[in-house]
Design a protein around this nucleic acid. Structure first.
Lengths: 135, 135
DNA sequence: CTTGACCCTATAGTTGCTATAGACCGTATA
DNA sequence: TATACGGTCTATAGCAACTATAGGGTCAAG
């Protein structure tokens, strides 16, 4: 296990597409790496960790903007940790709101879907009727 | 109540932005309307209904592509209604999958968030630690 | 010495809009 | 009659978070 990586190594190790890593670099989320003689990007362990952090946060549904903030906060160990806590809480609230929305939506889709028993053509299909008029 | 509308009327009646209606037209989801002498778009009751249908489906989370399909199917009353049913079912399954994802995510955010009791700086904040390493 | 896997840049496409610029239309009021 | 206002028009660019494509350079193995 060397501690020098090329972009494809990082991609494999973090389950990220190569183009996505370059994209992260272009928006300033990943640092601009050194280049080899043949102009290949060269990364070290620190950048691998950075990318792992980013992907982990993505998996948790944070936006890239939130991740940039989290990364900035986490890099200074003397920063108060309240902001990280607040960011996490805010995000959780957003996720919970979205869950509530989707639950309401699923309920209505089930209600609508249940009405199509037996009918075989659009003319007597209750789904279309349900879609046509507000509940 | 006339049955002739301008784009702003449709916008008001369906809670849609004017630009959005033009966008729907540009992608072929709304029909190309007649024009007045002064080149204003002129709509009738049928187009109002079409837009209402679209917005109702959007509220239910269907993609514009799915809506185009639903609209095409619903316009021919002799079409078998099984496809509409299938589309609705597929969409419901997608929504349910997303709900499951978000629930798992919320659980983990709660778990992570609960670890930040008392700590005041990043150096001993468990949230960052939790974000740094896979669960 | 060529094949194949990898890397590079640059640009355009995706979804569902939203924002902006710059201009025209139509009516109500001063 | 002038002008201010609200509405409308076109065209273009921007948003998130990538993905896809074109057209090329690099490098080790067979």
């Amino acid at each position: 296990m060397s501690d020098v990586f090329r972009i494809g190594d990082l991609a494999r190790l973090t389950d990220t597409k190569v183009v996505t890593i370059r994209y992260y670099e272009s928006i300033g989320l990943m640092p601009v790496p050194e280049r080899s003689a043949s102009n290949y990007r060269v990364y070290g362990k620190a950048q691998l960790d950075r990318l792992r952090f980013i992907r982990r946060c993505r998996d948790l549904g944070f936006s890239l903007e939130q991740i940039a903030e989290l990364a900035a906060l986490s890099s200074d160990s003397r920063q108060p940790c309240g902001e990280v806590d607040a960011l996490t809480r805010t995000h959780l609230a957003e996720v919970e709101a979205k869950i509530a929305d989707l639950n309401a939506l699923a309920a209505e889709l089930r209600r609508i879907g249940a009405q199509c028993h037996g009918s075989t053509t659009i003319s007597n299909c209750r789904i279309i009727e349900a879609l046509d008029h507000r509940p």
